[in-house]
């Protein structure tokens, strides 16, 4: 029972992990023919750095008390989390083809009771960070040194409770909280800047008492450095890593597609997408 803390020398590179996460996501997307593919492709590097560099967990024991908690606030990103949970060996790979089908453990929106490794039922957007605050308070009460990671989207910054939680985390000086904001600038009704502009982001979080970093969320090296800095910070402050990502990253012909929030991919395009992804694979 090994606690997986660092990338082993003989383990696949983080770039390769990200590639496999994207491949898993595309295969799941194909089951439905459409869905939150662009978000999954966009956030894959963040998840690779989280699950194969930063997080402590035991694949064979997803509820191990000593794990770092990883909350998926954005329930509809479940496809992305399943992709990484499969790569991490927490969800069996053969369940991939059940994604979003009746009686599957992999529903379209993440639910705690359905899936190993799914900590909360997200999806009512804006709820993850507040739950993370409570978990952080609870872990501190228990004297645990584990981190709580909350993955949220820039769209969730529209929600009031996000800022209630942000203020609360600053007030309680939750140094065991690391929030990951996936800034892909695309919401259900269109580009975030037109729906509700949430910039300037680092300044907002800092004003709420947070340590803020902003990185290219598709640059694995930059993500690793940001995770390391967030974990190593000694100041008793919650930490946020604002990750600027590109929707559908890794599949060029999907990156430019305008209707990307709930993307329709034609049947013949799935093979092309996998090929395009493969072409960009860094061995």
């Amino acid at each position: 029972m090994g606690e997986r803390t660092t990338t082993l020398a003989n383990a696949p590179s983080l770039e390769e992990r990200a590639y496999r996460i994207r491949r898993n996501a595309l295969r799941m997307g194909e089951v439905q023919g459409q869905g939150y593919i662009a978000q999954a492709l966009g956030v894959a590097d963040v998840l690779a750095a989280a699950y194969f560099h930063a997080l402590r967990y035991r694949p064979e024991d997803p509820e191990w008390e000593g794990r770092d908690r990883f909350l998926l606030s954005i329930g509809h990103y479940a496809i992305a989390l399943y992709a990484v949970l499969i790569e991490a060996g927490i969800v069996p790979a053969d369940e991939l083809e059940t994604y979003g089908t009746d009686d599957s453990r992999l529903p379209m929106s993440g639910m705690a009771a359905y899936t190993p490794g799914m900590e909360i039922s997200g999806g009512s957007l804006g709820i993850g960070l507040g739950i993370a605050v409570g978990m952080c308070l609870g872990l501190k009460r228990k004297g645990s040194d584990r981190f709580v990671y909350n993955l949220m989207s820039d769209g969730e910054l529209d929600e009031g409770p996000t800022w209630e939680a942000a203020m609360s985390a600053g007030h309680w000086k939750l140094g065991n909280l690391i929030c990951l904001v996936d800034v892909n600038r695309m919401q259900a009704d269109g580009p975030s800047t037109g729906v509700l502009n949430s910039e300037p982001l680092p300044e907002k979080w800092e004003a709420f008492g947070w340590h803020a970093q902003r990185v290219d969320g598709n640059d694995v090296g930059a993500l690793v450095r940001a995770f390391d800095a967030a974990r190593a910070l000694e100041e008793p402050k919650p930490r946020v890593i604002i990750c600027d990502t590109k929707m559908a990253k890794g599949v060029p012909f999907l990156e430019t597609r305008e209707k990307s929030h709930f993307m329709r991919v034609e049947q013949h395009e799935w093979a092309q997408a996998l090929e395009a992804l493969e072409a960009g694979r860094k061995a």
């Binding site: 739950i131 605050v133 409570g134 308070l137 409770p161």
Partner: peptide
């Protein structure tokens, strides 16, 4: 809102 979420988080632990 945050009160209820944080209570849920506490109960998780």
């Amino acid at each position: 809102q945050n009160l209820m979420l944080a209570a849920g988080g506490m109960a998780h632990e």
